[in-house]
Design a protein around this nucleic acid. Structure first.
Lengths: 195, 195
DNA sequence: ATTACGAAACTAATGGTGTTAGTTTGTCAA
DNA sequence: TTGACAAACTAACACCATTAGTTTCGTAAT
């Protein structure tokens, strides 16, 4: 009894490992304790509650996603950057289903802390779109649109809404979606120039 | 004891009422039993398990969403129809947050039954896009794109990802997203004509 | 080296969830 | 009137999160 080398870091690491393995965004404290060879209440010496654990894993997920994305768009600009971002965004979600599912379900309108954690992801897209010469609030609008398309696509895919008609090439749909965004953006830019 | 007038219909109706009230997509059998003034096991005389109840509520939600949408696009075609569909889709999700959250979380890649229930929603969009003269599989592609945009937008909104930069007008973002879809589609159609 | 203290583990318990088995009750038809 | 069946019940189990109170062990001070 007494002291084992348990730390918050180890707990979070095990939770992440489990989530990556099962592709489910959650792990119960009981299961986690089992895997760490400890009784459930012992975890409370290192974390406050389930919510805090969720936050920690969420932070991990966001950090990795953003790092992944920054790496993908490094030194790219304009359409190239948007395409690279989109490809790698979809790739991350596929490779880390559990983590992306968490990102996809974690924050809530009410939860200020989670929303703040997610900010870097928004900022990245803002940067990405800043080379198009848009007005500040139009950048914010188009950032919403791009993220809506990518996230919506992944979400539908994950929920199985693409199952039917699934003889239809998924990869092509993805490219079409990104192209749609770019065409929409270009149309907007052209009309802006005229006016 | 003995027989009270409990039926599956009443159970589902109460579940729906609760979901509409709380805006949460789930209700526990205990809570449901409490509200029906019955002990939890009694519910099992009318439903098999939680899953079946979920299915029933999901069916209700899909039915209402589709009816709502069909009503909105009746006798419209082309861009008009897409715009009307989008407006009313977003309106439904706002007015019935709990039900839409269920639609947004219920199906799963693995769950054939739920996916089949959701089909009418896909078919509706397919119909909507059939007046553009697209090839059959392009209709399926663009159906995915439209649904991805709308669902992605709602999901982000619901998750609070639009909170920051939220001085930015939400309504304008929505219109921009739909316009982006239409511009993307038109660009695609123009290029199809040329070739 | 001993002691004392605090952190980290534990046991025990509460209350929530879904679900099953076995029992009672009430109604309707024979 | 009685018997059978459906619909309610009680009791119980397994899983979960969490809290209170207890033991243990390592470390730091005497």
């Amino acid at each position: 009894m007494g002291t084992r080398g348990l730390t918050k870091e180890k707990i979070v690491a095990e939770a992440v490992a489990y989530i990556e393995l099962t592709e489910q965004p959650i792990i119960s404290l009981h299961e986690l304790a089992r895997r760490l060879d400890v009784k459930p209440p012992s975890l409370y010496n290192h974390i406050q509650n389930t919510k805090e654990l969720q936050y920690a894993v969420f932070q991990y997920a966001i950090d990795h996603l953003v790092a992944h994305q920054r790496n993908a768009v490094a030194q790219l600009k304009g359409d190239e950057a948007v395409r690279a971002f989109s490809r790698s965004y979809l790739a991350f979600a596929t490779a880390h289903k559990g983590l992306y599912r968490l990102i996809m379900t974690m924050p809530s309108e009410q939860d200020e802390q989670a929303k703040e954690m997610a900010l870097p992801l928004l900022d990245l897209v803002i940067e990405l779109l800043s080379s198009y010469g848009l007005r500040t609030d139009d950048i914010a609008h188009w950032q919403r649109v791009l993220r809506a398309i990518l996230h919506g696509f992944l979400s539908q895919e994950d929920l199985g809404y693409f199952y039917y008609y699934n003889s239809i090439d998924l990869e092509k749909s993805r490219e079409l979606a990104v192209q749609c965004f770019l065409d929409g953006l270009h149309t907007f830019l052209n009309q802006m120039c005229k006016a």
